[in-house]
Design a protein around this nucleic acid. Structure first.
Lengths: 157, 157
DNA sequence: TACGATAATGATAATCATTATTGTTTTAGG
DNA sequence: CCTAAAACAATAATGATTATCATTATCGTA
């Protein structure tokens, strides 16, 4: 396992939404379990609001706050990854294996990139070299047009 | 010049704040000039609000909207870079030379990283390889503790 | 030098994403 | 069962950013 596999997953800001005392174990909740499940199966990198819409099927009166609470919680405990695009709401990804993301500037979809994380390792090393702090993780984001948008754009000519 | 030097600067979302017709040249404005100047000289990667505070010295009744408008405009025309941290307001950087950023998860400062952009090129190539869209730019963000925070943290023991 | 078209501004309302608050319901251990 | 507190739903509040609109500044031209 590379160093990166330890350090890359998730954005590192803590917003624990549950027990005051972080040593007390989490209690079970059907809502959280369902959110976790949904993230585990979808590849759509949904926003909090999309997760909310989806949860309403099973829990007609779930609260948006509950969705946020649990997305933050899952992110904090490393069971989800938060993705922060420059111009829209955060997305969440249940796939915590280190991987990279692509952001389509036209349709604003987020796609996984099939890019070996080993590629990033030297970058990480190089960055740590002449830096007097401690680099704990890195995150590479790619921008451009997704396949669909390229097709659509060419049809518009 | 590498491909990257063309594509890396700035986040690629357009929010033009000025002329309806983008072919008409920009008019001069003292506020915009001052904002541009401030970005050019500072290394602090200020938020819109910090720019606003700074501008108020010279323009006591400048509007925050004007600051946002011009920061967006400068970003659009490639004279500034927008940096979007995962948990706080956007920062702006007048240095449009391709470079990377470090984000301190403790004090939330943003620092430039002395990392040769050549390091990133292979990553960019690799990402483009098996991807059916068009990758136009990439952005690598590093997280961790800055030098000051490392020092402070060790003193607290 | 004044004039007119419109870009740019200041003031502020509106929007959007997210977090905080509060009272109620669930969970899980005794 | 009973109870403490975790988790919830509902919703108010916050923070960042954008939209609106009436006024002012810029700049080419009369």
């Amino acid at each position: 396992m590379s160093t990166l596999e330890h350090t890359l997953p998730g954005h590192p800001h803590m917003t624990r939404a549950a027990p005051k005392d972080p040593t007390t174990p989490l209690r079970h909740s059907r809502q959280r379990e369902s959110i976790r499940q949904f993230l585990a199966t979808t590849r759509e990198h949904p926003t909090a609001d999309l997760v909310y819409q989806h949860m309403k099927v099973e829990f007609p009166n779930i609260s948006l706050a509950t969705v946020y609470r649990n997305l933050n919680l899952l992110t904090d405990i490393g069971e989800a990854i938060r993705i922060t695009p420059p111009d829209s709401a955060d997305r969440f990804d249940g796939n915590t294996m280190p991987h990279n993301h692509f952001y389509c500037t036209r349709c604003k979809c987020i796609l996984d990139l099939d890019l070996d994380m080993e590629e990033i390792e030297p970058l990480y090393q190089a960055a740590s070299a002449n830096f007097d702090g401690i680099i704990e993780s890195s995150n590479t984001f790619f921008f451009g047009l997704c396949g669909n948008c390229v097709k659509t754009a060419s049809e518009l000519v």
